[in-house]
Design a binder for these strands. Structure first.
Length: 809
RNA sequence: GCCGCGGUGGCGGAACUGGUAGACGCGCUGGACUUAAAAUCCAGUUGUAGAGAUACAGUGCGGGUUCGAUUCCCGCCCGCGGCACCA
């Protein structure tokens, strides 16, 4: 048993004193940038699951250093935003005070685990010197028309009392507090992420080292669909209804048109709609439904006919009925659809319920029999005028041409992703650096006056009025218009939590620069991030936002790469021992402080990497942690003998050492930490077996030192201690990562498997250079084999060199 | 409903491009040491039958390809994650 407290504090102190982890750009060396998603410093501190990703990046960082890279491995705090503020409100302290206290605790906990962060580069999104640049980027977007004011209804969380982006919702509930979100029309700032939708989608293909699952989530979230927009004239009116469809080929099957109840076309047709009173009542009813009630797939589709209104299908001049129904969403496409009940499930349901005409126009080898369900496959067109006989795909081509020629529509691409609602009616965020002037309109705060400091307030509780608490600070709100000098007002909304995290990885490159966001040369040297590790929950939030901002910064020449994160790995959760998510609510939280106290940081690191595949969720098990500790004790034991043990070099073990160097090196790079640890255990077990048996070590000192190096990224404290013990003076981090010797990987003796009809019957040792004939001859003499061959004819012998021989009888 | 991932001992999990299924760890059983316990060490640990050598079965289920399938193909079942009246 080694004294982990003594060893770990000793080395942590030395690492700080020698500035071991401080790095500078050095163009004579290759660089490697390893990044963790930075945490928001909550008051609960870290639980044992948080460091899992940090341990992995630390292992990679240490290995890369030993491989000769200049490694950037920074850490900081995502300290603005709702979580920090809600915590502060609950505990009745100022968010700044709470945040500062929490950071001290987080940093203490991280240091306890021996991470190799370069703390000289620490950043904090709430630091004015930092958020000055968050505001600066916002201003650049505003100048380019990418930030705009909108008054459309948005998601409103009644508990957090602020507007939210679509990305902040979880099944219609506030992602933070779980409250059901409402729709509220209000003034807000919106970022035009849709302008980047195509690039965000297409460039995913340029990221081969991102996990397919994450890319797929982003693709779904962006939700690109190609189709056509078609104008239906309203009979006897100048007005028209535009619909969006991806199935233009089915347009001859359109038997009615449906408008979303919020669609303004309805209001414009008020006078023509004979049953307006009823229609208005329906619109009211829908307004009072929550989004969840509306989108419940199981509910019956409601709707109301617009009496007196007919729409004209531009392809066959047919007059069709017009409905208002809430199964059509106003926020997607044009807020109106052409209903083709024969070929769309939703339209089919609605048509059945309202007894509407169902006309089939696409077939696929099944004749024209009556439909019991919508036929949504593609096929061959029928009953479609001049287009009959074409395939769906051909028809779409020709029909789009028809639309354009007749000026009644065109090809159109739609996205599910919405522009990003960027303002929050809360205190704890970056002030939006804009000024409202009666004469000049919206005016930017001059860049020389950035940052716009977040003022101190007496009450930072949300107001719920649609204004942030900042609106109450008249002294702060009142300013002179930078353009005309007249009395004007500051924008009082603040930025969301996601703002600061959209670009923090760039600030680490040059954290103290007061002139620019990041120095060009430093950016050129360190960019892009080579490895980024964090939770999968950010796939459609932070990771889309950050890619969007990065592309914008690329467009304005701040960065020189189009994609910020070359390789992305997501970390699997560590669950409680009861297999539930660790949470105070279940009382199953394991605190790393206790585990480090009992077993040591090295054991915790080894265990978390050994638990299972990195990206998979696994339940915590303290017994497993003690197993990791036993392994380290065994390691320590081998190196700690006072007397110098005799050495009798053993070729098998030497070969195993080199196989282990290969396996551990490759496994670390592939994020297969669990099998890397297992390889280290196998190696140490066989060394210690030899030691037990002969009282002689099978490897010499130099060979054994390679093992310490392999272990060092996982267990840096103990490794430094043993490294010193074997007489090394410099830190193990400055040593060179071991290489394996190809010639030592081959075994002299190979265990051959002998099968009869594919069933294992015997094993035998053969010299590596044995030929096929020798192996076959020998195999037939094995008793356990000959017994199965007796009296049978060998039809075939299958020989796999170095592995097996299989007799087919 | 759509998309993605997965299903292997009592448990976490290994298994290279089809070639010894269960590495490594936990737990459990027995033994050594000890007055005793802990720690440590040794042996065993997929199931069934057998004292044992051994035999048979076995990687969610049913088929198939192959000398040989956890791995490939077809058809299902279950679990997890994401998206979802997106036209």
């Amino acid at each position: 048993m080694y004294d982990h407290r003594q060893i770990e504090t000793k080395w942590q102190k030395r690492w700080v004193e020698s500035n071991l982890y401080q790095v500078k750009a050095d163009s004579t060396k290759p660089k490697y940038y390893v990044l963790d998603m930075f945490p928001y410093p909550s008051g609960d501190g870290l639980h044992v699951g948080h460091p899992k990703g940090y341990i992995a990046t630390d292992i990679i960082a240490r290995k890369r250093s030993m491989e000769g890279f200049q490694v950037l491995h920074p850490m900081g705090w995502d300290a603005f935003g709702l979580p920090a503020e809600n915590y502060a409100l609950k505990n009745k302290v100022h968010p700044r005070v709470a945040m500062e206290k929490n950071i001290i605790n987080f940093k203490r906990q991280l240091n306890l685990l021996g991470f190799s962060y370069d703390w000289n580069r620490e950043i904090n999104t709430t630091d004015p010197a930092y958020y000055r640049w968050t505001q600066w980027i916002f201003l650049q977007m505003w100048r380019q028309g990418l930030a705009y004011e909108s008054f459309a209804p948005i998601n409103w969380c009644p508990s957090c009392q602020t507007g939210l982006a679509n990305e902040d919702l979880d099944d219609g509930h506030c992602e933070r507090c779980g409250t059901l979100v409402e729709q509220r029309p209000m003034r807000q700032w919106v970022l035009k992420i849709t302008a980047y939708a195509d690039r965000l989608l297409n460039d995913l293909d340029k990221l081969p080292d991102w996990e397919e699952a994450i890319k797929e989530m982003q693709r779904n979230w962006i939700g690109r669909s190609e189709g056509a927009e078609i104008k239906f004239q309203i009979q006897g009116e100048k007005a028209e209804i535009s619909v969006f469809t991806t199935r233009l080929d089915t347009i001859f099957g359109c038997t009615y048109v449906v408008l979303a109840p919020e669609n303004e076309v309805l209001q414009n047709l008020k006078n023509k709609i004979k049953n307006w009173a009823e229609v208005e009542k329906y619109i009211e009813e829908v307004k009072n439904k929550t989004d969840l009630q509306r989108t419940d797939l199981n509910k019956e589709k409601t709707g109301i006919i617009l009496e007196g209104v007919k729409a004209i299908n531009p392809f066959n001049q047919e007059e069709v009925l017009v409905y208002a129904a809430d199964y059509v969403l106003n926020s997607y496409g044009t807020g109106a659809v052409m209903a083709v009940p024969a070929h769309d499930d939703r339209d089919f349901d609605f048509a059945k319920r309202h007894n509407l005409l169902i006309r089939r126009v696409v077939v696929n080898g099944d004749g024209e029999k009556d439909l019991e369900l919508a036929f949504t496959d593609e096929g061959k067109l029928i009953n479609s005028g001049e287009f009959s006989g074409l395939s769906s795909a051909e028809a779409r081509q020709k029909m789009s041409a028809y639309l354009e020629k007749n000026n009644c529509g065109q090809k159109q691409v739609n996205y599910k992703i919405k522009d990003w609602v960027y303002s929050r009616q809360r205190y704890w965020g970056e002030p939006i650096p804009l000024i409202h002037c009666d004469k000049c309109g919206v005016v930017a705060v001059p860049e020389s006056e950035l940052p716009v400091l977040l003022p101190e307030v007496k009450s930072y509780e949300p107001t719920g009025t649609g204004e942030s608490p900042l609106a109450a600070i008249t002294d702060w709100v009142k300013v002179k218009c930078p353009q005309c000098g007249a009395e004007a007002k500051r924008e009082t909304n603040t930025m969301p939590q996601w703002g600061g995290s959209c670009w923090y990885y760039l600030r680490y490159l040059d954290p103290k620069n007061e002139q620019v966001l990041v120095d060009k040369n430093k950016e050129k040297y360190w960019s892009p991030v080579d490895l980024y590790v964090g939770g999968a929950e950010h796939a459609t939030r932070h990771l889309i936002y950050a890619r969007f901002w990065h592309k914008f910064l690329f467009d304005i020449g701040v960065v020189n790469y189009e994609e910020p994160f070359t390789r992305l790995k997501h970390v699997g959760l560590i669950m409680g021992e009861d297999e539930r998510k660790m949470s105070k609510r279940w009382g199953n939280v394991i605190n790393p402080d206790d585990m480090v106290e009992r077993f040591g940081a090295d054991a915790l690191r080894v265990y978390e990497m050994f638990m299972g595949p990195f990206d998979q969720a696994v339940a915590w098990n303290t017994n497993g942690l003690s197993g990791a500790r036993k392994f380290l004790d065994k390691v320590n034991h081998i190196f700690s003998d006072k007397q110098n043990l005799p050495i009798s070099e053993n070729k098998t073990i030497l070969s195993l050492l080199h196989k282990s160097i290969k396996k551990v090196s490759e496994d670390i790079d592939a994020f297969h930490f669990n099998t890397a640890v297992s390889a280290l255990m196998i190696l140490i077990n066989s060394i210690s077996e030899y030691k037990q048996a002969n009282q002689a070590l099978p490897l010499n000192k130099e060979q054994l030192s390679k093992f310490i190096q392999l272990l060092s990224p996982f267990a840096p404290h103990l490794s430094e201690e043993l490294w010193e013990k074997i007489g090394q003076e410099d830190s193990i981090l400055h040593s060179t990562w071991p290489n394996y010797d190809q010639t030592l990987l081959k075994d002299d003796v190979i265990t051959y498997i002998v099968q009869v009809n594919g069933k294992l019957r015997a094993q035998m040792e053969m010299p590596a250079e044995a030929t096929e004939n020798e192996v076959i001859a020998r195999a037939q003499t094995e008793v356990t084999v000959s017994k199965w061959l007796e009296g049978k004819e060998i039809k075939k012998s299958i020989f796999v060199s170095g592995r097996l021989i299989n007799f087919v009888v």
